[in-house]
Computed example of a mutant assay.
Amino acid sequence: MESDQDVVSALFWNNTTSVAIATLISYEYILQFDKEVKFVWERQWSLMTYLYLAVRYLGLFLALVCAFWGGLLYMPERVSYVLALLMEWGFSAYFCLAEVILICRLYALSNQSRVILYVLLGLFIPIVALSIGMDVFLYSRPAAFSVKEIITPQAKYCTSSFNMGPMPAIYASIPILIYDIFLVVLAVTILVKHLKERREIRMRPNIYVLMIVRYHIIYFVLNLTNQILLAVLWANIPTAAMSLSQMFIDTAPFIIAPRLIISIWDMHVDEECVRISTAFADCVCWTSPPPFEQHEMDSHA
């Protein structure tokens, strides 16, 4: 049984990280809001617009729920349990949306190859099914996951409790990581092919290809770290380490995914890309060379 000192320490770390999460997410949203207005609300919507809005506002909602859940605001045990389930299922939905964005980017990088699109979707559907199955097994059964209310003379708050070891979570993360590795390898392969073709005609690499591949690698590193920390949370680790791990999980994905989309749109405008009026311009604009590249290509002809 936990001592009063352990309970106070856990509550201190919970409230400290909660304030940090709320501050980081709010600051990030305010920081990017002017670009969101410029690239989303004042323009015709495309598929990537809907994906951006999904990851932006689902991520904002989940981050704020994570920040206020637990001890920062008191919630009854039954409400806390429902919110805990909502957070876990929401994390899985967010992961799926982020993966769909990567699939769309690879589809654009491969010159809209339907073969690559069907392969990526065909491999992704079992990943979604696995994610749903593991959420049911790990989080939707009281025997595996529960929430308990802790009452002390100083405070009253709720905390989650894992009633099984970390191995199921580790096993479930392996196919997800393999799929992410496949996406990174495919993106790098497309980049190598692009660099070879550009070298043959003595043209500089397209900045959008480089940017999208770099973002694939960034997301892979982020997701790898996320999966490791999610598995670690099932183990009995010190409160400080658990709180810091939870803070990373509850902020980094919700900041990185929408920011990567915004940055590509921002670059698209700065570079005055050809075919800027197309509905899927944020992905397909690089298929035609910008004016300076077209002039350079003509000079080599």
Rank of each mutant, 00 (worst) to 15 (best):
Y94D: 01
Y94Q: 09
F95Y: 10
L97F: 00
V100D: 01
L102D: 02
L102Q: 08
C104V: 01
L106F: 01
A108C: 08
L109T: 03
S110V: 05
S110E: 07
N111C: 01
Q112E: 13
Q112A: 10
I116Y: 06
Y118P: 04
L121M: 06
L121Q: 00
L121P: 06
G122L: 03
F124L: 11
F124D: 05
F124P: 08
I125P: 05
I125M: 08
V128R: 09
A129R: 06
L130Q: 14
S131C: 00
S131G: 08
G133K: 06
G133D: 07
M134T: 15
D135K: 06
F137W: 15
F137G: 12
L138V: 05
L138R: 12
Y139E: 04
Y139K: 09
S140E: 11
A143S: 15
S146H: 12
V147R: 09
A155M: 08
Y157F: 14
Y157L: 03
S160T: 12
S160M: 13
F162N: 01
N163Q: 13
N163W: 01
M164Q: 15
M164A: 14
G165E: 09
P166H: 08
P166S: 02
A169L: 00
I170Q: 08
Y171T: 00
S173R: 02
S173Y: 06
I174S: 04
P175G: 04
P175K: 00
P175M: 00
L177V: 11
Y179K: 07
Y179T: 04
D180V: 06
D180C: 11
I181Q: 06
F182W: 07
F182E: 04
V184H: 12
L186V: 09
L186T: 11
L186Y: 04
A187N: 01
A187Y: 10
I190H: 03
V192M: 13
V192N: 14
K193F: 02
E197I: 11
R198I: 07
R198L: 00
R199P: 06
R199D: 13
R199N: 10
E200I: 13
E200M: 13
I201H: 07
R204P: 04
N206S: 11
Y208M: 14
Y208K: 14
V209Q: 12
V209F: 02
I212M: 09
I212T: 09
V213H: 07
R214E: 12
Y215D: 13
Y215E: 03
H216C: 09
Y219E: 11
V221I: 15
L222K: 13
L222R: 11
L222N: 14
N223M: 09
T225P: 03
T225R: 04
N226K: 00
Q227P: 09
I228Y: 15
I228R: 12
I228T: 14
L229K: 03
L229A: 07
L230K: 11
L230C: 07
L233M: 14
W234S: 07
W234I: 00
W234R: 13
A235K: 07
A235H: 03
A235I: 05
I237N: 04
I237C: 03
P238N: 13
A241P: 05
